[in-house]
Design a protein around this nucleic acid. Sequence first.
DNA 1: GAGCACTGC
Length: 700
Amino acid sequence: MADLPILQFEETIMKAVEENTVVVIIGETGSGKSTQLSQILHRRGYTKSGIVGVTQPRRVAAVSVARRVSQELGVRLGDEVGYAIRFEDRTSERTRIKYLTDGVLLRESLSNPELDEYSVVILDEAHERSLNTDILLGLMKRLVKRRASNFKVLITSATLDDEKVSQFFSECPVVRVPGKLFPVEIVYSHERPVSYLESSLATALDIHMKEGEGDVLIFMTGQDDIDKLVSKLEDRVRSLEEGSCMDAIILPLHGSLQPEMQVRVFGPRPPNCRRFIVATNIAETSLTVDGVVYVIDSGYVKQRQYNPSTGMYSLDVVQISKVQAHQRAGRAGRTRPGKCYRLYPSAVYEDEFLDVTIPEIQRSSLAGSVLYLKSLDLPDIDILKFDFLDSPSPESLQDALKQLYLIDAIDENGLITRIGKTMAELPLEPSLSRTLMEANEHGCLSQALTVAAMLSAETTLLPGRSKNTEKKRKHDYLDLPDGSGWGDHIQLLQIYECWHQTNYDIDWCKDYQLQVRGMKFVKDVRRQLSQIMQKIAKGPLDVQTSRRWKESQQDYHNLRRALCVGYANQLAERMVYHNGYRTLGFKPQVVQVHPSSVLKPDDEGKLPDYVVYQELIATSRPYLRTVCAVNIAWVTPILDKVNKININKLSGGIGRIEEHTEENMSDLPKTDNVVAAVPDDHESKIQAARERFLARKGKK
DNA sequence: GAGCACTGC
């Protein structure tokens, strides 16, 4: 601890903090910023007037850093040093240093917008630019003006991005702290690879034959490629084994792996052995593998992005940014000098890579964030003019306003309604919050709570793809409830009610190949949502889980109607002659129900005329994922409302944009309007690169 | 009849 670089900069940092309200700290990996900044401030008396809060983008980081700081200070975790993450608040009245996820701090500022109890807020890992961090950056900018006398903000960022952050906070000072990384030699390819999978394989084998001890970390874009490379490596390494003096272990590493499998990567390595870890970008930030000396960087990442004109998400393989390339290379220099093999020429890196990753706020639907900001009810806040470090496009903001209007969260003038105010209290996306409120009015809250909780964890519930699981399963999927013909939301409800009937039996989950961790998470979420609903709704509520879905032939009429009200912005109408659907409310898209849906055609071979959907996502084709049949009688009033939308009025009469031309109606994400309004060399370079990227996408 | 990168309240 004593040799952490940041401690040599204590005086510099404290001078900057004393003379300024906001300070940017640039600290590379190993500088000790996450554990030491809070302790320095503590030593210098900043915890006397309030709490020093440190935000982290991830839960595990908040917990592990808090634990280490409490050890270093020799106090019990939860006393002077504590943490707060969802479902777990380990703080007390004595807590002076508090680690928390940025999502938790946003929740706190909902009930206490001035954040009175904090004397300092440190936004750690701000360069990752998570949606929540970006919202917090905007809120902090406003807050430091109001609480200038007794409030400090520290922001940690990466080297390539610090000037912009400093400019955002009125040219606040930047303190640079060196990291403790070892030098990493960068090796570029001479030309672009024909197949980055084959290039990764060749490079990995080359390292194994020619280089000294040390593990190899290979960045791939997805599970399919990981599996392919793992099996190819196993074949090839075995045939090489006689020529090599080292054994090889090949390990996949991605988010869909059970945590127990992920842990294998972190165990002790057998002697005279080299591990190949084939990973997604989970290994970029979330997980750190010790012993890595060689990194193979394909230069690509799979990224999710949102198109506000169609309401559609897509998952695309895109080039990484320079910041990401730097981060990946850094993974090779943690324990000793390393090497990073970039499977692309240096000219490609220089000319094509964006300097920084496009922030999440420019790649997501903003309905939830806009509702959150509106609910803060700050007198001087105007959403379309909210001061973001990087503004979302006007289209994206207007899309959010339109969605919120359709579900009654804001009125026709863009002002938050009482319904909207209550919705914002719920840690759910607006569609589900609205569904809960409607369900509460119509006596089906307990069912809606279950659906909302199941959807909060849906991706981690169903079994991961694996060839061996088929045989082990005692029951077929047919034994699981099937949604009684109404669709996936109803199926999720029925599954949970079955589990409830078994008194939450873990073995039942295992028999049905439902992920135990996921189901437990659902139970936690459901409990949390019930508590919040009981607090914010007046009078007693029925939140008990029903035990008898099987005995009654119910049609879930009220629940489906509540879903229709909540998902008024995610409606689709079946085409007349086939089972394709046309989305309503957005620029119409022809889409299919995802094959994984339980919704099946009736005796006449037809799907329901109208459905609401949880997600519209383009993978190989555009699909509706997680759908529920609804009645036309519920849809008609919504369509009337859609037709009457006056976006100009919704935006408060400002930020009006010109009518769309044919050209503007393309399917490509539009993120450049705001950027174009701020002529600036750095920005225009980003925009140019983005346009190249979009042009490439357009071709395929 | 196809498949999903990663987080978080």
